[in-house]
Design a protein around this nucleic acid. Structure first.
Lengths: 359, 359
DNA sequence: GTGAAAGCGCTAACAC
DNA sequence: GTGTTAGCGCTTTCAC
């Protein structure tokens, strides 16, 4: 039809009034004007098929109603990142009714310069950092920015001044570890997560801490380096199977490695949990068909995204940069891959620490 | 540091020259000016930490260097949509080096009005429609837009004038069906895909067409309504198991339903492929651990996204709206869930049609 | 070689 | 109640 998108000016002309009037009315400030004027403007806009140019509005208002979702290079491939997908879903769910848009910002390799261009170019009102990895350059860059920001999926060290939202990795892992201990295990191994993820670090730390709190030793040869993948779990299992002495239980930092670990153990004739108890973390739906009986820790990634978006939104709307973080509680999902160690294995009951930390 | 982002004007002042000069130089038109001037401007920009405001540039240039990735409501939840993830990856891969950004546009329910606002608000240079479903309102809306557009993941009817990129569903399904037939099967069932997906329609059509071409009847009681999900596959298997007469092979419109179908059959004591051959489509990595032996059809979703982005990009850059589509060839992945029907079952060799369609 | 000036489409003081 | 005007930050024609 129309050869070009109609502008506010044309609406004003059609309605026979000024730009201001038109702009105000179209922004919903109806009470400022006579009902008749309002109606005329609205009608004109409708009949012309007017849609505001958000670019122009953004320039004038200094607000874009868009947030930037910043991916690390490592996460850029969404496909390999179930976590990111759930978080993104949550983000979108929160922002959709607010008429905010989401812009995907994938950091190019290249010079810091071109990275800056992508981050701080006036097109977003704030940044959601998707699981920044340990020593990510992102964090340093952020220090030079005055835009609101929230880290989602990584609980960063508080001294960075960036509010974070994630599951309570430490609380969840403590809960899981305690439960394994309470099943009677004293010889417990651990499959670590991806070495660059804060969550991996935190889960490992909580495991060690809990073991120590219960007076149980952690043997370094039973600590394996996973990478949050099925294949890495398999590899760790192979390493375990090569050992002469084995733990009676192994806790994995995530479900993927747990599934791989279990598969490999089964392939080598071990029975789970009779010969070895294995636990995961995340209650990952994708892993579930593979390993339906996995005892694990569930948390709500979708909600993590939702809350992170909310936190960011509040910062944007109020103009205040806050830096309090949210660690969402996790819940233990008891299924069948963890059982008391079988007879003949060490079963000395561990001593219970005086102060039991919940959550 | 700086209280606000420096503007072009400040750079110009610092460099002691005009806005025009500064703008031109910063856009790379160095040859217009004396080397000394160029250097002065560049130095000023660098020392101020200048980064252009893309909003302002967009307004002036009428180009945003952003494309909109438009999700149907049904696809909004990325999590449940492995396809979308791969496509998105491909899109990002293509656009990243071009300094184009991607904006996620999730269509709100609501009035057409608010949908329009999100689509046509000046913030994107073109739309990538993510697998529009059959009779999607999107397609109608698109007719009123003059922005470049590409449909990715749905090969739409050509009369819509929208260029499309997807796997060649019909060619792939024909190839698969022919192969099953060539294994000696004459009684072949089919699990349909999601009723609202073009791909599902096309796969079903190709199945029927191929059967007909080979002079084989399709029995409607052996055509089941799947939904591109594991659970729907299970359901279809239950329906099949309730029948007195069964086909010797079942082709599923996707790997998910194939996996569910197989699981359910196995659970009821059927042996695959001895008692029933089953084939899938997509070579879905997520399904692979569940059903590693699945005979299926592979295609490159990542490439679909990549090419779609490229097609859109070309439209944007050249300003020409084209409407040729791309159907990427698929390849047959022969594994173990399809075998010749066992002795005792009908084995009359089907007649080969005179003209065998490849691809 | 360089710069003044007129937009891009919209918003928001501030007048009337 | 309604309109005038001066930007928002950048690009670009056209003159000097």
């Amino acid at each position: 039809m129309a050869t070009r998108k109609p502008t506010l000016r044309e609406v004003a002309q059609a309605a026979g009034c000024s730009l201001t009037t038109t702009s105000n009315i179209l922004q919903g400030r109806h009470e400022l004007y006579r009902a008749e004027t309002v109606e005329r403007v609205l009608a004109a806009a409708r009949s012309l098929g007017y849609r505001p140019n958000m670019l122009a509005r953004g320039l004038a208002k200094q607000r874009t109603f868009t947030i930037g979702l910043v991916f690390e290079r490592a996460h850029a491939v969404l496909t390999q990142n179930d976590y990111a997908q759930h978080v993104l879903d949550g983000v979108i769910e929160f922002l959709l009714p607010l008429e905010y848009d989401v812009k995907l910002i994938t950091l190019p390799a290249g010079r810091p310069d071109s990275i800056w261009r992508r981050l701080e170019n006036g097109t977003v009102d704030g940044h959601l950092l998707l699981a920044p990895v340990i020593d990510s350059p992102l964090l340093e860059w952020r220090r030079h920015s005055r835009l609101p920001v929230v880290s989602v999926g990584s609980l960063l060290p508080p001294n960075l001044g960036i509010p974070c939202v994630d599951v309570d990795n430490e609380g969840g892992m403590r809960m899981l570890t305690e439960w394994v201990i309470q099943q009677g295990h004293r010889h417990i191994g651990f499959v670590k997560g991806h070495p660059l993820h804060w969550s991996a670090l935190q889960r490992e730390r909580a495991f060690r801490k809990t073991m120590a709190d219960y007076g149980l030793p952690t043997r370094e040869e039973w600590i394996f380096q996973g990478r949050y993948t099925i294949e890495s779990g398999r590899q760790c299992a192979r390493e375990l199977l090569a050992l002469r002495e084995r733990p009676t239980a192994v806790i994995c930092a995530d479900d993927g490695s747990a599934a791989g670990f279990i598969q490999e153990c089964l392939a080598h004739g071990l029975r789970i949990p009779e010969d070895l108890s294995v636990a995961g973390f995340d209650d990952e739906p994708l892993v579930h068909p593979l390993c339906p009986n996995l005892t694990t820790v569930r948390h709500d990634k979708h909600r993590v995204g939702y809350l992170a978006a909310q936190l960011l939104y509040e910062q944007i709307e109020t103009g205040t940069l806050r830096d309090d973080s949210i660690a969402l509680p996790a819940t233990l999902v008891i299924r069948k891959t963890v059982a008391p160690p079988s007879a003949g294995q060490a079963l000395v009951a561990p001593q219970i620490p005086s102060k039991e930390v919940q959550r």
